[in-house]
């Protein structure tokens, strides 16, 4: 539904893809690891290798969790917009079919947070 307004209501998108000097915002959350209170968001170049996100960006953000070092990345299950998704680590973010403001989640079966509490 459209906004009910008195006059013309011009569209002003505050976080459009044009606002990040060529980067895209990418969101990643780690299921059952709510010690990180919310999913993370980074501005990333679309040409960045997906594996670099996992190997170079994510450790600084997720590494404080004791489970992080135990992750077997070949067994990780990924979700994109809530649906199962398989990334190719060697391909770029763009080549993986991702786009600005996409939301990814990953699950690590067997690793279920502090004392299995989902934390």
């Amino acid at each position: 539904m459209a906004v009910n307004a008195l006059k013309d209501y011009p569209l002003r998108v505050m976080d459009g893809v044009d606002k990040y000097r060529g980067d895209w915002l990418i969101n990643v959350g780690w299921d059952q690891h709510l010690m990180f209170c919310a999913p993370f968001m980074w501005p990333l170049p679309p040409a960045m290798r997906f594996g670099d996100l996992v190997e170079k960006i994510m450790p600084a953000s997720f590494g404080a969790h004791p489970d992080f070092a135990r992750i077997d990345w070949s067994k990780v299950e990924w979700l994109k917009s809530g649906k199962p998704w398989t990334p190719d680590f060697e391909k770029s973010i763009e080549e993986n079919g991702l786009y600005h403001k996409d939301s990814l989640r990953f699950r690590t079966p067997g690793l279920n947070g502090i004392k299995g509490s989902g934390s």
Partner: peptide, 30 residues
Amino acid sequence: NTTLPQLCQVCQIPMIFTEPDDPTQICYRE
């Protein structure tokens, strides 16, 4: 925590809330 979180576009709170039927799962809607 030094990485910025994903936020809800309406209430603007970081996406910290969980699914009504599963307190171990962050609630994602888009």
